[in-house]
Design a binder for these strands. Structure first.
Lengths: 171, 171
DNA sequence: TTGATTGCAAAGCATTTGCATGCTA
DNA sequence: TAGCATGCAAATGCTTTGCAATCAA
């Protein structure tokens, strides 16, 4: 227990501070959801996380996961992302730097990238408008290298590939 | 009639070509929806457009507007955008260059901007990954200049302001 | 003890689908 | 005439809300 507790020490402190500051309460569900969330290295929907939480504690409800994910977003521990399949995904910053996404519309693969230059230009752009940015989202859709080279092929998706995200319409 | 027809000549040709190429049919509803869409200089939801179309032809159904907006997106005449209020907005390119958005989370104002430098860096970034981008979306959330200067105030939204978008959660 | 939290069921919303009818090509 | 398009109603799917019971501070 003590080892795991230490692992997310900082994140738990951030959550705790956010709760106290907002006059909210620390609960076992919130702790558990945060822990499982941080432990998972994928883009998760509320539903995905709900299922993972269920394994540890079947009494936790769907609603609580939804509400907690919003809470974690407010606390700055989670970030909402959309890839175009009309679902809301969440990702955390634990052991990850800030990044943006490229989404392959053929196989659904998501590539994470970061460009300090783009970030700087964004800030500069915002400044031009007297706009004070709190956060942003940059997404590129298109074909990843594999799907590109197959594009002459019959396949529209990589053969046997299990797309993480099936992009239906761009949102 | 002939004057209006000329106004969107190019766009109508694009739609027509797309329809023919896909083995689809030109209909009065599609023409009407396209015309009203192009004539409106705002970010429209399907619902918004539906209401506008209703004024001209009350027999047109909601479903048709949804379907046509998807069609126009496929044809490259419309673009889907999300500002964070869980609604899908559409914008057209008619008399507009490509641009990105800044969304004020206090008053909901949407600022359109364009940066050739950012565009270039995006392409370069994609190239690094062998990724061939077809389109992208860049959004910045934060406080616009007016809401910034009021931030010491009691108001969280501009007094009497009618926000175009009420940003609930970032998506 | 007080008021936030939870989980369930029900409600909300935006969007999609089934299907019979109507229309383009 | 064939089969795409339309509009209605019903169905979806994700997310939120109402509420009584429970729990943290």
């Amino acid at each position: 227990m003590s080892i795991e507790d230490d692992e997310f020490r900082d994140e738990k402190a951030i959550l705790l501070e956010h709760l106290q500051q907002a006059g909210l309460r620390r609960t076992g569900q919130r702790d558990l959801i945060l822990e499982i969330f941080l432990r998972t290295e994928e883009h998760l929907t509320s539903e995905d996380l709900y299922r993972l939480v269920q394994r540890k504690d079947p009494t936790v409800g769907h609603t609580t996961v939804y509400r907690t994910l919003k809470l974690l977003t407010d606390a700055g521990l989670a970030r909402e992302v959309r890839f175009g399949d009309n679902k809301t995904y969440y990702e955390h910053h634990y052991k990850h730097d800030h990044h943006d996404h490229m989404i392959c519309t053929a196989c659904g693969k998501v590539i994470e990238f970061y460009s300090a230059e783009i970030e700087a230009l964004q800030d500069q752009m915002a400044d031009n408008f007297g706009f004070m940015p709190t956060h942003h989202s940059l997404r590129l859709w298109g074909l990843c290298s594999e799907c590109r080279s197959e594009s002459g092929d019959i396949h529209t998706t990589a053969p046997g590939a299990q797309p993480r995200v099936k992009v239906k319409s761009v949102v």
